[in-house]
Design a protein around this nucleic acid. Structure first.
Length: 289
DNA sequence: GATGAGCGG
């Protein structure tokens, strides 16, 4: 019979190994006692030594006081709970992690586009609408009212001071061109640029939006562009298409860069015979949000 | 007869 007093540190890996071995079922079960009032925990177990002899191994551990002190009040309280679930059969501290086979469905806190359950904490009634709590326009800075792309001032020069060139100082001491030193200024915004109005092709410009109806089934966007570009630069063409069938819905929109060109197109093309049908071309009423 | 899809930091 061998007795050994263990070192202070518990080697979990070793404990696991001890459990393995083909003849372990022949041995008495491991007995764990403590920790007692002095903080000593005793583990008595049996195993076979190199020569195949059955040996009793007693190991004593000291439960570290420091570790205990670090536990939160609730964690200490939990320690007095009786074991439950799969851990009922386990020794003290024998297995720290239980693997559950239970299937747990994780729900996303809030699906995109779904409505927020609670009104926003800020109390701003506008902030909760459209599901976007942090809707702050990057152009005018207005909160909860519109996105940057919908800003009524989107065609005005950007307000971001750092990237806008300053007017040249009166004494001419400023940097050439009046630019802030080191700040990038896109060509369209440099002083002396012909066109100071930002034309963003990606954005809609409802101002010069023309609605075209009574299009034939096979009229597509390139056809519309070809027809309307003769009046001036077109910023966007769109033909409404049935999402399911892909068939044209017989109407579309053409956006002009310049309002005058849109006017010309309306006056010339409204009532124009195109592809066996009479086109209707008129100003589009801005789509309600 | 008919009024667009999508992009959200």
């Amino acid at each position: 019979m061998a007795v050994e007093v263990a070192t202070q540190k518990i080697r979990w890996g070793e404990l696991e190994e001890d459990d393995e071995g083909d003849l372990d079922f022949l041995l008495p079960p491991r007995v764990v006692s403590g920790p007692d009032e002095n903080g000593f925990k005793k583990v008595v177990e049996y195993r076979f030594d190199d020569k195949g002899n059955k040996v009793k191994v007693t190991r004593t551990f000291r439960v570290r006081k420091i570790a205990r002190a670090r536990l939160s009040k609730s964690a200490i309280e939990r320690r007095s709970w009786p074991k439950f679930g799969d851990a009922v059969q386990e020794d003290v501290g024998a297995r720290l992690t239980m693997v559950s086979t239970e299937e747990i469905v994780l729900e996303r806190p809030r699906a995109p586009g779904s409505k927020a359950e609670e009104p926003s904490a800020s109390g701003d009634p506008l902030a909760s609408k459209s599901g976007a709590v942090l809707m702050v326009c990057r152009t005018c800075g207005k909160k909860g009212d519109h996105w940057t792309s919908k800003c009524p001032y989107k065609d005005l020069a950007p307000q971001t001071e750092a990237f806008v060139d300053r007017p040249p100082t009166a004494d001419g001491s400023g940097p050439p061109g009046g630019a802030v030193k080191g700040a990038y200024v896109p060509p369209s915004m440099r002083s002396g640029a012909v066109d100071r109005v930002g034309h963003d092709m990606r954005r809609r410009n409802d101002e010069n939006s023309v609605r075209v109806t009574n299009l034939s089934e096979d009229t597509r966007e390139p056809d519309l562009l070809e027809l309307f570009r003769t009046f001036g630069p077109v910023s966007r063409v769109y033909v409404a298409v049935d999402q399911k069938t892909g068939a044209s819905r017989g109407f579309g929109f053409v956006n002009f860069v310049h309002r005058e060109d849109a006017e010309k197109a309306i006056s010339k093309l409204n009532g124009y015979g195109y592809d066996n049908l009479i086109l209707r071309v008129e100003w589009a009423t801005p789509r309600p949000n």
